[in-house]
């Protein structure tokens, strides 16, 4: 193990390390902690310029209550759910199939198709912006959740294919050969042999894509406009325009907008990190 484990060091270093951890963590998260503090301060604190002093009273319920009851926030959150969940399902389903095709079969064009998916996944969004917006307008899907979902599914398929194909390639190929010898059709091999083994990959991709899409801002402002279809990342900016300079409310709103992927991360941590660090170890 590197660096030397602290339990092998003197007690001074051991306890020093344990004491240092929370201090460093607080410094690391300070900007966020500041916002969390703002979000439970009452309006009067800001009026009297008491920014960092002890809050006059705790306004947790008032602030968060207003975010949920007095603004469009719940609608934006719901929009985010209706954009994110179908995208996750669509991209994972499509990439299970493309990953299977590129990971199991060895055909000449395979590697080039695979590279096309990988390259497409890295292009700057701006090179797609004008044509995709045009395409969405032509299909009558501008400013709809469906239009946004279709694009996200297509784009995420690139990354998901990279992920799935590498995962499937590492599966024991002998199992598939054995099934073929038994005369099992290719479609049944996909469904009954390979798919059950892909569960960890599916879980990892699902949480990753959930976070990516929930946090998307660029496409949200390119393809949607109002509270009917905009996700919460775009909604928070309108929310802030509505409550300009009301820092306690803007802070509470930001925390609400950030929370779902955070909860997802803590609930599915193992899968999330497995997905994110794919390829970091040989």
């Amino acid at each position: 193990m590197f660096p030397v484990p602290v339990e092998k060091s003197s007690p001074a270093i051991r306890y020093g390390y344990q004491a240092l951890l929370p201090v460093v963590l607080i410094i690391w998260l300070l900007p966020l902690i500041a916002v969390a503090i703002f979000s439970i301060k009452p309006e009067s604190d800001f009026a009297s310029a008491n920014y960092w002093g002890w809050p006059e009273n705790l306004a947790f319920w008032e602030n968060y209550g207003l975010v949920f009851a007095g603004s469009d926030m719940p609608r934006y959150l719901l929009n985010s759910v209706f954009i994110t969940v179908p995208t996750v399902i669509g991209a994972v389903a499509l990439s299970c199939m493309t990953g299977f095709a590129l990971g199991i079969y060895k055909f000449k064009a395979g590697i080039w198709i695979f590279f096309l998916f990988v390259a497409g996944n890295f292009v700057p969004f701006q090179i797609l912006m004008v044509p995709v917006r045009e395409l969405t307008l032509d299909m009558g899907l501008y400013d709809t959740k469906t239009g946004l979902v279709l694009f996200h599914v297509a784009f995420q398929t690139g990354f998901c294919t990279l992920f799935m194909r590498n995962f499937i390639k590492a599966l024991p190929y002998a199992l598939i050969e054995a099934a073929r010898v038994e005369g099992v059709s290719e479609i049944r091999i996909f469904w009954y042999v390979v798919l059950p083994m892909m569960k960890p990959a599916i879980a990892a991709l699902a949480v990753l894509i959930f976070t990516f899409i929930w946090n998307d801002y660029f496409w949200a402002i390119v393809l949607t406009q109002g509270a009917d279809s905009q996700p919460v990342t775009a909604g928070i900016t309108s929310f802030n325009a509505q409550y300009r300079a009301a820092y306690h409310l803007m802070s509470a709103g930001s925390i609400v907008a950030a929370l779902p992927p955070v909860m997802m991360f803590f609930a599915m941590q193992k899968h999330f990190i497995a997905g994110l660090t794919l390829g970091a170890v040989k």
């Binding site: 090179i127 044509p131 279709l150 297509a154 398929t157």
Partner: peptide, 9 residues
């Protein structure tokens, strides 16, 4: 999907 939304654009 990928051709329509990523490669062609």
């Amino acid at each position: 999907f990928f051709l329509l939304y990523v490669i062609f654009p």
